[in-house]
Nucleic acid binder design. Structure first.
Lengths: 235, 235
DNA sequence: CCTACCGATCGGTAGG
DNA sequence: CCTACCGATCGGTAGG
């Protein structure tokens, strides 16, 4: 495949062995090959398998096979199985943050006044379900359910991204809390709400009746109380 | 497998009966064989370790060491590591059901009229947090987060217990839904609420400020709307 | 329940 | 990225 194309590329550091193109390729060289693609393929395959079977139950051989490599080859791209796990989670978090940021920005730009806090929260929740349950959504579930296998440093790095993600929710949640539309301590409310959403990974069945929009509606109805018109004018 | 069940009840199919304590039963005087105790110790140790490190990352040697046995000995009591996992979950579910049933019964008997649906739900939620986060609460978290490692049959057996557990919640949830105190489709509301509660396993820190009562209060505030006095009299 | 042990698998590496 | 391989570990078993 494109592997063959890559092989034809001349490498300045290549040994002068001449001969033909045997199995022994030149060692890792200047990084200008299609390295990135194979790497991405590995991360995608790992995400899928980690989600399906769990980190511990997935062997590096499984991952290699999923992308058509042999057993030792993933270690050419990642120095350890744990590095692969981290890559999955890091990719998942960055993607989720980018997605939510874009959605919020679009809402704020298009019609700021038409987006009160409840509408913003609905956007966040709807996108969150998409990130969790939509097509190609293996990264965040892995992140949520396999973090036990991370090192302390990896966990700390990801905690920062998680903080960034949560920060996107703060304005909407705080506003709704102050309006009395979300009851109880905001901090606990946030944790409970995230739990309710994240748990959907365990039970949601795309082939069933409920759509992601239905889920978002149900969540909004459950967590956010309609503003009482009386009190609203009073404030 | 169902061997675990068979042991706890008297089951005509119990395969273990025929193979009575066979081989070199040594040292201790014949009275010392508190078979049941060692079994229970194993299940407890397994629950703790499965929760801490996960099922796959826990070796049967870890479990044996935790109760002072040697590596092969757990297999005298359980025919496989998977049977041990099932025993943990089965024990956890039966205990949780018994606990909730007793609490509900006590409430209904002591002062039925003082326990409207909201008060019942509060009891259920409070006990649920206790089962999840209280002292000795390793069984249900294992059940919630390690069910991927079960066989299909084990999963089916546990699903029945889970159904029994959920059934305890139905009266309260349905009543509140009909009263308009819980919004949205009941079925989705139930799943979201369970998720919110179950997720607490991931973040709750007993050494922190919030108590289990605080959690229960926060959950009630978030999910259950106060009945509007106006509408109440109208109905 | 211990002793002794086995086959399978796994993460990872050397070297081309 | 493949070939060939290794040390460690694991679930499980035979037999007393």
């Amino acid at each position: 495949m494109d592997q063959a194309v890559a092989r034809t590329r001349s490498d300045p550091h290549a040994p002068v062995v001449a001969a033909k193109r045997p199995r022994g390729r030149p060692r890792k060289t200047a990084d200008e090959r299609d390295d990135g693609n194979r790497r991405v393929e590995l991360v995608n395959a790992a995400a899928k398998l980690f989600r399906q079977k769990g980190f511990d139950a997935t062997s590096t051989r499984d991952i290699a096979a999923a992308v058509g490599m042999h057993s030792g080859s993933p270690f050419y791209h990642f120095k350890s199985k744990g590095a692969l796990l981290y890559a999955v989670m890091d990719e998942g978090m960055r993607s989720a943050i980018a997605r939510q940021s874009a959605a919020l920005q679009a809402a704020a730009v298009s019609a700021p006044s038409a987006f009160p806090a409840a509408a913003l929260l609905r956007v966040l929740i709807r996108n969150h379900f998409d990130v969790l349950l939509g097509p190609g959504s293996d990264f965040i579930p892995v992140m949520l359910y396999e973090s036990r296998s991370l090192t302390a440093r990896q966990r700390a790095l990801l905690a920062r991204l998680q903080g960034d993600y949560e920060a996107l929710w703060a304005p909407a949640l705080n506003a709704l809390s102050q309006d009395g539309q979300i009851k109880g301590p905001v901090k606990l409310a946030r944790l409970l709400i995230f739990g309710a959403l994240n748990w959907s990974v365990q039970w949601f069945d795309a082939s069933k009746d409920a759509s992601l929009d239905d889920l978002a509606d149900a969540a909004m109805a459950l967590f956010v109380q309609q503003p009482s018109p009386v009190r609203q004018s009073q404030a």
